[in-house]
Write a protein that binds this DNA or RNA. Structure first.
Lengths: 156, 156
DNA sequence: TCCTCACGTCAACATAGTTGACGTGAGAAT
DNA sequence: ATTCTCACGTCAACTATGTTGACGTGAGGA
């Protein structure tokens, strides 16, 4: 047992000197991301999965019969990177692949019932964090948050 | 050359069916995080560094003479995980370690001039994204964003 | 003087990503 | 009809970032 510090799972926000006006916002983004995914990751670990598996489950849930190629595009990773986590999901029958009868050039992916259950549980953890946060600021605050995040996301 | 899709660096937001009310917010958080760090990561890559190095530089810049133990606590990673990236920063003389004269139980870390320059450049990329996004919504929107992110971050 | 234990380091391993190489089969070109 | 091409998916090898475990060292208390 060698963790004098950081036995806190949630990594309380550190107090750092602010060198720039926006440092606070910067740190909020960092800790916000961690805060949202913390419980979901812990849940996923209990079922032997992790973040990349969840991302796959999330997308497949919302695009049934998606092909591997499309999945790669949506996730923004290489097809080789997709291979291992997806193989695990298939092996554990959380995702089912069928080749369409006449067109068997690509595989079509779907969640099994078990896969759906895990996807929903994990995503629920994340949505709960957001729901609670939005409750603090009401609908206008939530709308403003969405607007800012949209602007940040669309930067590129 | 084998990337028919995803040659777009910025990974445009995918259009996924929304199964829950908060799915949009969930995805915004994901793409927002990516959006903020995208340019900074690209810059860091040009100088042979990456995200963990930047996090170290960021913290050390705001806590000069921090010890390794404190740094571990702030970053929320294990001291072994810190070891390799920090060793690189020391080797490249972006961070300097001095042992205090009488108390040489712990090392005190500081950025060198070169380290400061890189930290500022990388952080500037991230702050710029935030600044632009905030400009879209004005001060009240920014305040609401901060409030929501604070609530999300403090979840734990 | 000795014990303890925080500090920091090294070694071994897991996981998630990368690039490269390649088999296979659909569809186009000839 | 035959051949070419090339997208699709898979496998192998490698890199990077993290984990846990083991351990040397020296400060400070007993």
């Amino acid at each position: 047992m060698q963790k004098t510090a950081s036995q806190v799972p949630g990594l309380h926000r550190a107090s750092l000197r602010k060198l720039h006006e926006l440092d606070g916002a910067l740190e909020l983004m960092y800790y916000g991301w961690r805060g949202m995914t913390l419980e979901a990751d812990a849940y996923l670990a209990t079922v032997g999965l992790s973040r990349p598996h969840h991302r796959i489950l999330y997308v497949v849930a919302r695009r049934p019969d998606i092909s591997i190629g499309e999945l790669i595009e949506v996730l923004g990773i290489s097809k080789q990177a997709l291979n291992r986590p997806l193989a695990l999901l298939l092996e554990r029958k959380l995702v089912a692949a069928k080749r369409s009868p006449e067109q068997h050039r690509s595989k079509l992916l779907r969640l099994t019932a078990a896969g759906q259950k895990i996807e929903q549980s994990a995503s629920n953890h994340e949505r709960k964090v957001l729901r609670d946060a939005f409750a603090h600021v009401g609908a206008p605050g939530a709308a403003a948050w969405m607007a800012v995040m949209g602007a940040i996301a669309d930067n590129s």
